[in-house]
Simulated assay, not measured.
Amino acid sequence: MSRRTRKAAPARGMPRPTVSVCRGCCCGTAKVPDVDHAGLLAELRRSLGETATVRAVECLDACEQADVVVVQPSAEGRGAGGRPVWLGLVNDPDAVKDIAAWVGAGGPGLADAPEILDLYTFRPSRRVRRELGH
């Protein structure tokens, strides 16, 4: 008999939106100069507080789009048809404010993104989508 404790099964779906901020080989580094990368991440965390999970992640393999942010819908948003939204070249405070406002309003599936975010939206390669399960 094993003495290890059994972990509870993870809940299905995300109860709230998740904002993944790439901090891999190019994003969040001096390779994208004159940007307060830490400040932008801190602002997302501050702005979204309990509304969304904001996490720094390793390389998302879309380096040509540095800095990359992926907004994943909540379970409710996914049920309403929301899908992950990839945003690239997120290197200024105004973009971070627009992302925070959208996610704060519900994010993918529940709220329309500000039109300005269309300029940041991109589709990652099939290989990257396959590896990440998107």
Score class of each variant (00 low, 15 high):
91 N>C: 13
89 L>K: 15
81 G>E: 05
92 D>V: 01
66 A>S: 09
87 L>G: 01
73 P>K: 08
71 V>G: 06
68 V>R: 09
62 A>I: 07
75 A>S: 12
96 V>L: 03
81 G>K: 10
96 V>Y: 04
78 R>Y: 10
90 V>H: 05
72 Q>E: 12
59 C>H: 06
60 L>M: 14
62 A>M: 05
93 P>A: 15
90 V>L: 06
77 G>D: 01
66 A>H: 02
68 V>P: 01
88 G>Q: 08
83 R>E: 15
83 R>S: 14
63 C>M: 01
72 Q>V: 07
93 P>M: 12
76 E>N: 09
94 D>K: 14
65 Q>C: 08
70 V>S: 06
69 V>K: 08
71 V>H: 04
62 A>N: 11
74 S>R: 08
78 R>P: 00
95 A>T: 14
74 S>I: 03
90 V>K: 08
88 G>Y: 04
95 A>W: 00
79 G>P: 02
74 S>G: 06
60 L>T: 07
75 A>V: 05
94 D>L: 14
66 A>N: 02
60 L>P: 01
87 L>Y: 05
94 D>Y: 10
81 G>M: 08
88 G>E: 05
90 V>N: 01
89 L>Y: 13
66 A>D: 02
67 D>T: 11
61 D>Y: 10
95 A>N: 08
64 E>T: 15
73 P>S: 08
66 A>Y: 00
95 A>R: 12
86 W>H: 12
63 C>P: 00
78 R>D: 07
68 V>F: 04
75 A>L: 12
82 G>C: 10
62 A>G: 07
66 A>I: 04
73 P>Y: 03
87 L>V: 06
80 A>T: 07
96 V>P: 00
80 A>Q: 12
62 A>P: 00
64 E>Y: 08
65 Q>H: 15
88 G>K: 09
96 V>G: 04
96 V>K: 05
85 V>Y: 03
61 D>I: 12
76 E>R: 15
83 R>Y: 05
61 D>H: 10
83 R>T: 14
88 G>T: 08
68 V>E: 04
72 Q>G: 11
92 D>C: 09
67 D>N: 15
68 V>D: 00
82 G>S: 08
67 D>S: 13
83 R>W: 07
85 V>I: 10
75 A>D: 09
81 G>S: 09
74 S>T: 05
93 P>E: 10
68 V>I: 13
72 Q>P: 00
60 L>H: 06
91 N>R: 14
60 L>Q: 11
65 Q>R: 15
96 V>R: 06
82 G>W: 05
71 V>A: 06
61 D>T: 13
72 Q>I: 03
70 V>K: 04
92 D>Y: 09
72 Q>N: 13
93 P>Y: 01
66 A>R: 04
82 G>A: 08
73 P>C: 07
82 G>T: 08
